[in-house]
Simulated scan of single mutants.
Amino acid sequence: MVDDAMTTLSVVIPARNEAENIVTLVRQIDTALSHHTPFEIIVVDDGSSDNSIDVLETCMQTMPHLRVLRHERSGGQSAAVHSGVLAARAPIICTLDGDGQNPPEELPKLAEVLLKDEQGRVGLVAGQRVGRQDTLSKRLASRFANGLRAWILQDSTRDTGCGLKAFRRAAFLRLPYFDHMHRYLPALFARDGWETAHVDVSHKPRVAGRSNYSNLQRGLVGIVDLAGVAWLLRRRKKVRPRETAK
């Protein structure tokens, strides 16, 4: 069991039907953070129909810092991340996808930016995939979506779809929640006055299972979300109070 007071880093993994990948991923995270600050790993099973829960429960027997949450039905990636962050014990959160394509060895690099931010200005560290290992159609669709989003929101981020991120738990929980919000974190953190640091990360091909999303699904949902986020940015609170001295 992890001591709540000692835990300074929580790794949140949203996963759905990733039974073939999740145990290997969790063990790789454990290795990658073995010399790091006290940490916990939280897997949020988003309504899987495979045996993900069974393999995770077996894994928990030998990993006391592994926690498993479950959605009875699928709520999507943002819902899973949000549930994990709410349950997290640490002030700093790292996330990565449950499909094994985000290398866990990149996690210390992301967390370090926040742990060393003495002025407390950085709220989000966004991984930027280099050498992306996806199909050509997926890469082209992502490039178009990222370009359109960056042009409209001016968030200075070339790859918001990368699952590798680190952020301050308290700041994240103040953001307005909506489905698919995970793709707009740089703009949402900037809306609240936080800086975003960008870190290049590697990417691996999927070795088992299949993606839970299609390019068409992402595109149709993305149009509505982009308009909504642009509205949120325009309607942000533009004044902040200053306490007067006694």
Rank of each mutant, 00 (worst) to 15 (best):
Q128G: 01
L107D: 04
Q133W: 01
G123D: 05
G131N: 15
K109G: 10
P104R: 05
G123M: 03
R132E: 14
P104K: 09
P104Y: 03
L114T: 10
R132W: 05
L114D: 06
P108W: 06
G120M: 00
E105T: 13
L115Q: 15
N102T: 13
E106G: 03
R132M: 12
P104C: 07
L115K: 14
K116D: 14
G131A: 07
E112N: 15
V113R: 12
K116Q: 15
E105P: 01
E106N: 14
G120K: 10
G120R: 07
L114C: 11
D117R: 12
G127S: 08
E105S: 13
N102P: 00
P104S: 11
R121K: 14
Q119C: 06
K116Y: 08
A111R: 09
Q128N: 09
Q119H: 12
R132I: 09
A126L: 09
V125N: 08
R121H: 08
A111L: 06
L124N: 04
K116H: 14
R129T: 09
R121D: 04
P108I: 08
L114Q: 11
Q133G: 09
V122F: 02
G127P: 02
R132L: 10
L115I: 10
V122R: 02
G123P: 03
R132S: 12
K109C: 09
L115P: 01
V125K: 03
L115W: 00
D117V: 05
V125R: 04
A111G: 13
L114I: 13
K116N: 15
K109R: 15
E112M: 11
R132K: 15
V125F: 02
G120A: 04
V130Q: 15
K109H: 11
K116I: 03
L107G: 05
P108H: 12
E105F: 08
Q128K: 06
R129G: 04
E118V: 11
A126Q: 15
R121W: 00
Q133H: 08
Q133Y: 00
K116F: 02
V130G: 08
G123S: 11
G123H: 06
L114F: 03
G127H: 01
P103S: 10
P108A: 13
A126W: 01
L107R: 07
V130R: 15
R129M: 07
E118D: 14
P104E: 08
Q119S: 14
G127V: 05
P103N: 13
G120F: 01
L110W: 04
R121S: 03
R121G: 14
L107N: 08
R129A: 13
G120I: 01
L107W: 05
E105Q: 14
A111P: 07
V113Y: 06
N102E: 12
L107H: 05
E105K: 12
